[in-house]
Amino acid sequence: MSTLGMSSMSKVTTRSRVDLVADELRNAVAAGSLAEGQRLNEIDLAGRLGVSRGSVREAMQRLVQEGLVVVLPNRGMFVLEIGPDDIVDIYDARRAIESSAALGLMGSCRHDVLSALQEQCVLMSRAAGSGDHAELTAADQRFHEILVESLQNRRLQKATQTFAVETRLCLTRLEGKYGAPQEAVNEHLDIVRAIKSGNAKEVLQAVNVHMDNAIDLLTGRSAAASTASA
C-alpha cells in the first residue's frame, strides 16, 4: 500500500528522489489514496513525503507525460479521471495485446508460463474465498503481467506499462462488482484452459469474454442494455 494512504507516513530517502517520488505517486493513484479528480498540492505532497518541492514537481511532470495527471490552466494539476470511453479504450488495447500473448502460448511448450498463470489463479481463488479483495486484485494484475511478459517483446511490454496504473485503477474499481468473486477467478481459469486446449477460437473467446465482462461491470453497459430492452 502506498504510504500516502497511511496516517504514519514514511519519508522518501535521498536515493534517486524523483524516481521514488514518481513511484510513490503512481502507487497512491493506483490504490486510490490519491483519488481520481483530486487536485495535487505540491507543498502538501512534499511535506508528507519529506522531499523538496522540486522533486515533487519533477515527479508530477512525469505523471503528466504518462497521462496519469492532467494540467488544467489556472487551476493546477489533477489526478486523471477515467470515464467510460477511457475504460473501453484501455480494455480494447489489453484485448489486442493479451490475445496475441495467449495465442502465442498455444503449443509453445512454455510450461513455466502456464504454471505461473495457474499459480495466480490459485492465489485469486484463495483470496476470493477469504474475501481479501486487495489480494484478489494483486493476483489478477500479476496474471495479466505474466501473460504479456510471455511475448518477450520489450516494446509491447513498455506499451502496456504506459497504462499499467490505469489498468490498476480499473481493477480496483472492479473490487466487489462481481456477484461472486469466484466469477473473476473462473474467467482467468478459462483463459488458461483455452491456451492448453490449443484451440485458437477458444482462446480468443476466453479473452474476449473476460475483457467484455470487465467493460460491462465498469461502465454499467450491460445494466443499461437490460434497461433499454425492458
Rank of each mutant, 00 (worst) to 15 (best):
I82Y: 15
S52R: 10
F78A: 05
M60W: 00
G54L: 03
V56I: 13
G76L: 07
S55W: 00
R57M: 03
L63A: 06
L80V: 12
S52L: 07
E81D: 04
N74K: 14
L49D: 06
V69Q: 08
S52N: 11
L68V: 03
N74A: 12
R75N: 09
S52C: 05
V79Q: 11
M77H: 04
F78G: 10
E66I: 01
G76R: 10
E66L: 15
G47T: 00
V79N: 13
R75G: 01
P73L: 04
S52H: 10
A59P: 03
V70D: 13
V64N: 07
V71N: 14
G50H: 08
S52F: 07
V51C: 08
V70A: 13
R57I: 00
L63D: 06
L68F: 09
M60T: 02
R75K: 15
M77K: 11
I82M: 15
G47W: 11
G67R: 12
E66S: 10
S55L: 01
L80I: 06
G76C: 05
E81W: 02
Q61F: 05
E81Q: 12
P73A: 11
N74T: 03
L80R: 15
R75E: 14
V56T: 04
R57H: 08
M77Y: 12
S55G: 06
F78P: 11
S55K: 00
S52A: 12
E58S: 08
V64Q: 14
M60S: 02
A46I: 01
I82E: 14
M60N: 01
I82G: 02
L72Y: 10
V51E: 12
S55N: 05
V51Q: 04
S55M: 01
V51W: 09
G54H: 02
V71S: 14
V70F: 14
G54I: 00
E81N: 02
G54M: 02
G67W: 12
P73Y: 03
G47S: 08
Q65G: 12
G50P: 06
M60Q: 08
V69S: 05
N74M: 13
A59H: 01
V79Y: 13
E66Y: 05
V51S: 08
E66G: 02
G50E: 12
F78W: 12
R53M: 06
M60L: 15
V51D: 11
V79G: 08
Q65N: 13
L63K: 07
E66T: 00
L63Y: 06
A46F: 07
V71D: 15
Q65Y: 08
G50N: 05
S52Q: 09
M77I: 00
P73F: 04
L80P: 04
L68H: 11
R48M: 06
V56N: 09
S52D: 14
L72K: 14
M77P: 00
Q65L: 13
M60Y: 01
N74G: 03
E58H: 03
F78C: 11
P73D: 10
L72V: 12
R62M: 04
V69E: 09
R75A: 15
G50D: 11
A59E: 01
